[in-house]
Amino acid sequence: MSSTTYVIRHAQVLGGEPADLVLRDGVIAEVTAGGAASADGATEIDATGLVALPGLVDLHTHLREPGREDAETVESGSRAAAAGGFTAVFAMANTDPVADTAGTVEQVWRLGHEAGLVDVQPVGAVTLGLGGQQLAELGAMATSAAQVRVFSDDGKCVHDAVIMRRALEYVKAFDGVVAQHAQEPRLT
């Protein structure tokens, strides 16, 4: 953890009155009235006119890598996320190949780690190839370096009630969740 001290001046915390935030060793050590914090040896950042918020989390992004690097990459998506105030993004599984194996989710996670801007958390596919027929190796994804905890077939939806039930039960073993579009794909 960085031992550098930062002072963010005149930030509107949650949109309130301007204040100074003193960040020491990676945590908010002090909040003072705007301009009141000591700058002793600290890196100062002027945030006049800016709002300070907790890092935002986007549970539903498409970083397109691997497969559609022409549209987006983990690195470009990370950058956009950071610029928008997001510190963590969940990358949906409809890549090519689909993020349905430990290998693919680890690749996405590693690319995010290398970009180093936000936490990139791959979402694992619930079923093989998003095909809705057979469970993907959810446990292998959960125990991979990516430690996947969110699984979704996203727009494809898990439309088989039995598969959905099994998936919901199965992820209990590693405290996972299954995210589902609230739609019945055969009716839309």
Binding site: Q134, A136, E137, L138, A140, V162, Y170
Partner: peptide
């Protein structure tokens, strides 16, 4: 049992 989706694959079952 794999076909009835009780677990994803023989490989994953055996590993876990």
């Amino acid at each position: 049992r794999m076909n009835a989706a009780f677990f994803p694959s023989a490989r994953e079952y055996s590993r876990r």
